[in-house]
């Protein structure tokens, strides 16, 4: 597990990460993030192209910062490019940070 995290910062690690897509246990998603912190988005795992594009247009894409304001069991509130959004659990788990 440790190795997976360390590797994720290198290019090779990115390849490993992409392969293990779907096992959210090994990656940090928005649901395991800490309220009040800003993170850089690493990946969007929605399996839905249109959703990905939509998120993109809001400013939510790989490499951009996203701030978690509050987190609940089934949802969380984030800040993307000066806008506040409420995301449900499934969407939060699909945003890898």
């Amino acid at each position: 597990m440790e190795l997976a995290y360390k590797l994720s910062n290198s290019a090779a690690g990115k390849a490993v990460e992409k392969e293990s897509a779907g096992t959210a246990n090994e990656k940090k998603t928005l649901m395991n993030a800490e309220p009040g912190q800003t993170y850089i988005i690493k990946e969007l795992n929605t399996d839905d192209d249109e959703m990905n594009s939509f998120l993109f247009r809001l400013g939510c894409y790989q490499g951009e910062p996203i701030t978690l304001i509050s987190k609940k069991k089934n949802s969380c509130i984030v800040v993307i490019k000066d806008g506040r959004y409420n995301l449900d659990k499934m969407l939060s788990e699909a945003i890898i940070i």
């Binding site: 929605t46 399996d47 839905d48 959703m51 939509f54 998120l55 949802s75 509130i77 806008g83 506040r84 959004y85 409420n86 995301l87 449900d88 499934m90 969407l91 699909a94």
Partner: peptide, 9 residues
């Protein structure tokens, strides 16, 4: 089916 909810506050 994966359903996502996103609402701007």
């Amino acid at each position: 089916r994966k359903s996502f909810f996103i609402m701007e506050l």
